[in-house]
Design a protein around this nucleic acid. Structure first.
Lengths: 206, 206
DNA sequence: CGTCTATGAATGAATG
DNA sequence: CATTCATTCATAGACG
């Protein structure tokens, strides 16, 4: 299946800041979950009403638990390091956004408890996550202390450090013209046309 | 389990009208497209820092046979990974040699600035380079205990170092791989995997 | 063309 | 907190 990707999807390279990337990634994570849900739904529905999509001819809506994809060589085997599930990540990200301060011990515990419903997790994991998250997002803004930073000014042209440019969170508004310059296939377009909710905070997929 | 319906618009589990089915199918299709878009986008500007205008083989002994003149809008990129020019590499190596210590933030910046004379580079690149360099050289040399390095062969043998590991969360381990298993991510892919995090009914995006 | 290898990058955890 | 370490993922090139 080949996509169109004609002129429409042309994207200017080199215009996205690190922060924008993060926002994008979050959005992607959200869509991933949505799609998973839809996929599951689809699977269960398929048993009643087989669709044309190349599903498992089995019709049961089930799957092979360990599909070796084309280039995937992932081992589901033993890994000791905690890895957040996408759901957990989403929650963590939202929490991170709403309060920039370090969650105190109490808060950490709450978060850990909540997240444990979506997968294995410990308080230490949560703690570390916040530590790292903060430290790493901080590393991208440092050169902004002084206006008379002439010596560094030229860096912007070369290394193009991220410049603070987005203050919103979770919204596409600021980027859509960058992300989807094509007027016929923008996110806003897609969202507004369907019966599906266009707002993340209120969508529900029973 | 059965949703109480006040009017006919509610869906009772297991009983779906054709119309609802159609709606659902549309939703799936729409999300599939969105995800594709996001995936594509991700591929296009994968790297969080702009490496515009490609790698200029300026002064390097290398130049890409594929660099062309930035006309092929397709996905010319995927060439996102920074690759040091030979000149840069030499400098990096020499710096690494002279002070095996840790180049601090300040130093990194200097190096990056200097190397930018010989090609596109960012501080992050330099940072990563040293990071990797150190780690790599450490992994090779340390078995200097000589005689005992025979037992070192089994690296995959999980050295009983069971830290505070977490089992699985009943879902996938890393969301990113689910998201971008391959350039051709589509609903089919999601459907074929059919795996999801078990419960997703209560996540919120705020 | 498929596989292997070197290496840039991402990230959980540890250390000061 | 700021840095650093360790492990892993992903991909560009090399190789056959």
């Amino acid at each position: 299946m080949e996509r169109e990707s004609q002129n429409g999807t042309y994207v200017r390279r080199g215009v996205m800041t690190e922060e924008q990337m993060e926002t994008l990634r979050k959005q992607i994570a959200v869509y991933a979950v949505i799609c998973e849900q839809l996929a599951l739904l689809h699977n269960s529905l398929s048993s009643f009403h087989p669709l044309s999509s190349g599903m498992n001819p089995n019709g049961g809506g089930y799957f092979d638990p360990l599909v070796a994809s084309s280039s995937a060589h992932q081992r589901i085997s033993t890994r000791n390091r905690w890895t957040p599930t996408s759901t957990q990540l989403q929650i963590l990200e939202s929490i991170y956004e709403e309060r920039s301060g370090t969650p105190n011990r109490r808060r950490i515990r709450e978060i850990a408890t909540e997240l444990s419903e979506h997968g294995q997790i410990t308080e230490t994991n949560v703690y570390n996550w916040f530590q790292n998250r903060r430290a790493r997002s901080k590393r991208k803004q440092p050169p902004h202390t002084t206006t008379t930073d002439a010596g560094r000014a030229e860096d912007a042209a070369v290394t193009t450090d991220e410049k603070r440019s987005c203050g919103d969170s979770g919204g596409f508004e600021s980027y859509e013209h960058i992300l989807f310059p094509s007027p016929d296939l923008g996110i806003e377009h897609l969202l507004s046309r369907g019966e599906l909710s266009g707002d993340f905070s209120s969508y529900r997929l029973t």
